[in-house]
Design a binder for these strands. Structure first.
Length: 734
DNA sequence: CGCCCGACTTAGCACGCGCCAC
DNA sequence: GTGGCGCGTGCTAAGTCGGGCG
């Protein structure tokens, strides 16, 4: 395009910067250099220099430790907010429970009684689409969903690929995913549950187990408990890290009596080894328990699950995801987390906010205790919440992914991504045009969006410095995270990305970018006259970006691009790959397609500890199988010869041998496929994309290649994707 | 109108259960 | 019956995003 130079850089309207120059908490090392190095090799060939470079940078960045004071301020604010929140009890906790007598999909033996309440037929007539008065966004969204809903019971216009009827199914038995949902942010009308399960109380150590500080020393129960947290982690690398030790010691001292505090002044002098040995012995003992004992524990767990692991939301008994409160312990942040090692406090009933319907049987706090609050807010989905003491954030107990409320949200997410599919070309054209805008903020927005689209980067919200590990996403990229090469390895206009993303997973990538469309030139411009730790996009943040995206398409946000690109990639890759003849090869193809997505989204994992070994085992197996095969072939040959001699044209022996050869060949192939698959998978995690980014209906549609869903999804996954399995046909198109 | 926080999704890792080979 | 190991599952940290408030 000739527009390349139509705007002189000097003319750019600079406006004011969104983000001022920032002094970051300066200490970002990589979580595990060795790991990174390997990963890098795997993914990007051989850039050996970069790891070292990173390490050097880390050293450079140590001078500034300026942010500690922020914390107190931070805390103050939190308290205020908490106070304010108590007032805001909602008035909409009403509930009418209906009972669906024929609904045996969610069989609920225990709770049948609570289900048998008055039926309010009118209200639950979800076929009649009464659109209420609300005109808010959510309502709009809902309407969009309705348009593309598969209509099983009443087929309107078969507008969508998945809109076909499935007569064979009995929709009455299952959750009706196309049921009319509530409007105006109401998430449920009836919610009943038993509350959380608390962590077991601390059991003091037997008197023979000692803690040593110079000499044996008995700790107060409070101090002892915290000491055991540390003792249990002694084998972990964490306990060697300075920040971890510092934070731990500081918080531990808070739990000590004044005598203990006076005495124990140096963590280095603390000897936890006896405690540590004791716990190791305990865990051994647990493993060595008799069958009966193990069974007993299992039964007890099952009982707890049955009692606390389910709730009733509207007229269904639904599984709760995490009904156990997180036990106390030492905080294990990921990457270089400034708070690692801090004490994660024990959560008590008085910390707990319970959410349920007004007319439900309220969960009871343990005898002699009280909940912090019981509220009836049906505009949220959580059952229980509490505020965690490390970051001051709120933790929730919510439903399992198999639940209606989560499934529907999931479905909606993919529908939004499919809507993006319809207008992505338009959006791409627009951001390309915007690269040439005379407004700096628009150029930045356009380049950022390009990265988000092309590289599937995360949005990149700002983070509070010094509160978390120093990680970034697209909008929060800093100058130091990019390198520009006008020419690199024979390619023109290469951008090298090197930064830590979510969970401090390294993103390293070299990408050639469009010069004629000015990406490269824009980047040079954005980086001009800036320090390494200045923001690359200084006139952009996620809020600005998402507001813009919202204008381009209703419901569009940065993360929709990840979903869209992941799902569309899977679909394309599957079309390219799946022309193999047998099922195992097809599964391999599926996994490869899945892998392409995982690579796109940078979903990595540490190579499994047992990787080398298990690979060897597999090779041994393969060789054994090969031997077996040649044996079988030999036998077949001799059987054939034998049959010829005896002129026995339909020799049974020959037939059986033939079958044996075939079977072994199949087994061998299966093993070989498995080996390839595993090797390719060494450092790539497929699970995350499979669970969160790939429209499950694409996988369901793999029926058309003869791949049954069971081969792709295990039981839990099938439960999570019940909605997709229920509604998608083999001709589903994302 | 920016910032803060509540609600919800997405993320990797540890651990232990159950299955398979012997 | 046992031992090893691979996978599923639970756990909880760390993101995204929107709404409300000052």
């Amino acid at each position: 395009m000739s527009g390349d130079h139509s705007h002189n850089e000097d003319q750019i309207d600079c406006g004011s910067r969104v983000n001022s120059h920032r002094h970051k908490y300066k200490e970002h090392k990589h979580k595990d250099h060795k790991k990174d190095k390997e990963r890098e090799k795997l993914k990007h060939g051989n850039d050996h220099a970069s790891d070292k470079k990173h390490r050097d940078k880390d050293k450079m960045k140590h001078k500034d430790g300026s942010t500690d004071k922020l914390k107190d301020k931070h805390k103050e604010k939190k308290i205020k907010v908490l106070d304010g929140k108590i007032k805001k009890e909602k008035e909409n906790g009403f509930a009418h429970v209906k009972c669906e007598p024929d609904d045996d999909f969610y069989h609920s033996p225990k709770h049948e009684k609570s289900l048998k309440r008055e039926r309010d037929d009118d209200e639950y007539d979800f076929k009649s689409k009464k659109v209420k008065t609300e005109n808010d966004k959510k309502d709009k969204k809902r309407k969009q969903m309705e348009d593309i809903k598969p209509k099983k019971t009443k087929d309107k216009k078969g507008e969508t690929a998945d809109g076909k009827k499935k007569a064979k199914k009995e929709p009455e038995e299952k959750w009706k995913w196309e049921e009319e949902r509530y409007t105006d942010g109401v998430k449920w009308k009836f919610l009943e549950h038993k509350g959380p399960v608390f962590a077991p109380p601390y059991e003091p150590l037997p008197s023979k187990v000692n803690f040593y500080y110079d000499k044996a020393m008995r700790l107060s129960p409070e101090a002892e408990e915290v000491a055991t947290f540390f003792a249990k982690m002694l084998d972990h690398e964490y306990t060697t890290k300075d920040i971890f030790r510092k934070n731990f010691f500081k918080d531990w001292r808070k739990e000590m009596t004044s005598e203990e505090k006076a005495k124990i002044t140096d963590l280095k002098k603390c000897n936890f080894s006896e405690m540590s040995d004791y716990f190791k012995a305990q865990s051994e003992a647990r493993k060595a328990m008799s069958k009966e004992e193990k069974l007993k524990i299992k039964a007890e767990n099952e009982r707890l699950l049955q009692e606390y692991g389910f709730c009733i939301m509207d007229n269904h008994r639904e599984r709760i995801a995490n009904f156990r409160i997180e036990p106390p312990g030492l905080f294990r942040g990921r990457g270089d987390h400034p708070k690692m090692g801090m004490l994660k406090r024990r959560i008590r009933p008085k910390d707990i906010i319970v959410n349920c319907s007004r007319d439900s049987k309220h969960p009871q706090p343990p005898p002699g205790t009280k909940w912090k609050e019981v509220r009836h807010d049906n505009k949220v989905t959580w059952l229980v919440s509490w505020t965690e003491n490390i970051q001051g954030s709120i933790k929730y107990i919510m439903l399992n992914p198999s639940s209606r409320i989560k499934g529907e949200k999931d479905w909606q997410k993919y529908e939004t991504a499919r809507r993006l599919k319809k207008c992505v070309d338009r959006i791409r054209t627009q951001y390309r045009d915007d690269w040439k805008s005379k407004e700096m903020r628009i150029r930045q927005r356009a380049v950022a969006l390009y990265f988000i689209d092309k590289l599937a980067l995360r949005a990149g919200n700002e983070k509070e410095e010094g509160e978390t590990a120093d990680t970034v996403g697209c909008c929060s990229l800093r100058v130091e995270h990019l390198k520009l090469y006008p020419e690199n390895d024979g390619q023109e206009y290469v951008v090298e990305f090197d930064f830590l993303g979510k969970d401090s997973i390294r993103y390293y990538n070299k990408v050639p970018v469009e010069k004629r469309f000015q990406v490269f030139k824009n980047l040079q411009l954005f980086m001009e006259n800036k320090e390494p730790d200045d923001d690359l996009f200084d006139r952009l943040n996620t809020s600005i970006l998402n507001k813009h995206l919202q204008e381009l398409m209703d419901g569009l946000t940065a993360k929709v691009f990840r979903t869209y690109n992941a799902s569309i990639t899977l679909q394309q890759q599957l079309k390219e790959l799946t022309n193999d003849e047998n099922v195992p090869a097809k599964i391999l193809s599926y996994n490869r397609a899945n892998r392409a997505v995982a690579i796109l989204c940078n979903h990595q994992r540490a190579p499994p500890k047992t990787f080398e070994k298990s690979m060897q085992n597999l090779q041994t197996k393969i060789e054994a199988k090969r031997d077996q095969l040649s044996d079988a072939k030999r036998e077949l040959k001799s059987a054939k010869a034998d049959a010829k001699v005896r002129k026995d044209e339909k020799s049974k022996a020959v037939e059986t041998k033939k079958k044996a050869v075939q079977r072994i060949e199949e087994q061998l192939m299966k093993l070989e496929v498995q080996a390839t698959d595993r090797e390719e998978n060494k450092q790539i995690a497929l699970g995350t994309s499979k669970l969160n980014y790939l429209d499950p209906r694409i996988s369901v549609a793999c029926k058309k290649w003869g791949i049954p869903v069971e081969k792709i999804y295990n039981k839990t996954q099938r439960e999570k994707f019940a909605w997709a399995i229920d509604m998608a046909d083999e001709d589903f198109e994302f």
